[in-house]
């Protein structure tokens, strides 16, 4: 019985292709940041290689999976791998949440003279009062408006929460073999995801043009755009992954018992959802 053995692939050129892609990407972006504009194209070349690698590598894995060489133990490896990958993403976000909490609870009150920092305030930043949001005692980036929590962000919250429900419905449909329902609700999920990204873009344009709220608007602008920006990037990646999963469903992939990729993407989607709730509460609302 072939399924008794754990599948160990013989060799693969995708990882080394990925490393070369990363080399071009990192050298390209670094040289570009140092002021050489042609290096941007090296960066783009690197990104292209990485994208090609991802498609090739995943195509490889999908073909293996469809050919049935993966046994249940391989499936568990994939699941655990995805779980720990998401955990690493959680920790990445926690660095930026940490920065937000530190600024709000430590550095800004201290700049305002809190704790034993009376003279910091008096001598360095006389007249600065601790408040949130703030662009700092030197008014970095100039006068700005802070992002109100209701309106667009609330709509976005509703969109993401709804998408969490639709993907769960799609999952149940998959488990019960209702392919038509699965297709519709999976499509709904990634559409909601892309609408979220679009609205986030609208919000950014509004912030930059009408509110003078920019990445450069002191610590508030920094934390606002870095947190929502990285989250938006993850939603984009998640929506692309959902689209690919949807295309695979259209091709007839996944069975009620075997659908690791679907679940992995669903976990990822719930993860970006949970991050958003944290964002909505701590960045927009409180």
């Amino acid at each position: 019985m072939s399924n008794n053995r754990y599948y160990v692939p013989s060799e693969s050129y995708w990882p080394i292709v990925g490393s070369i892609g990363l080399l071009f990407t990192m050298v390209g972006v670094s040289t570009w940041l140092n002021g050489s504009s042609p290096a941007f194209w090296l960066f783009m070349l690197g990104v292209t290689i990485v994208v090609v690698m991802l498609f090739g590598w995943f195509a490889n894995v999908i073909a293996e999976s469809e050919s049935g060489v993966y046994n249940a133990q391989v499936d568990v490896s994939f699941r655990m791998g995805m779980f720990w990958f998401i955990f690493s993403e959680v920790m990445f976000f926690s660095a930026f949440f940490g920065a937000l909490f530190y600024a709000r609870n430590m550095s800004i009150p201290w700049l305002g003279g809190d704790s034993n920092n009376f003279f910091t305030n008096l001598i360095l930043w006389d007249g600065f009062e601790s408040t949130w949001p703030t662009n700092g005692p030197a008014d970095v980036g100039g006068e700005y408006e802070s992002m109100p929590p209701f309106g667009l962000p609330l709509i976005n919250t509703a969109l993401l929460l709804t998408s969490s429900v639709t993907i769960t419905i799609a999952h149940h449909a998959l488990l019960q073999g209702q392919r038509a329902l699965l297709k519709v609700f999976l499509a709904l999920t990634f559409l909601l995801g892309f609408i979220f990204v679009y609205l986030q873009g609208v919000e950014y344009i509004h912030a930059y043009h009408e509110m003078n709220l920019k990445l450069t608007s002191g610590i508030y602008g920094s934390t606002f755009f870095m947190l929502t920006g990285f989250h938006g990037m993850h939603v984009t990646i998640g929506a692309i992954m959902l689209t690919i999963i949807w295309l695979r469903v259209m091709k007839g992939h996944f069975t009620p018992t075997k659908h690791f990729a679907f679940e992995a993407v669903a976990w990822y989607w719930h993860f970006v959802d949970v991050v958003w709730i944290g964002l909505y509460v701590f960045v927009y609302w409180l």
């Binding site: 550095s107 930043w125 610590i219 920094s222």
Partner: peptide, 11 residues
Amino acid sequence: TSFFLAAGGGD
């Protein structure tokens, strides 16, 4: 950004 810039409220 101002993460590590006191003038902008960072540290």
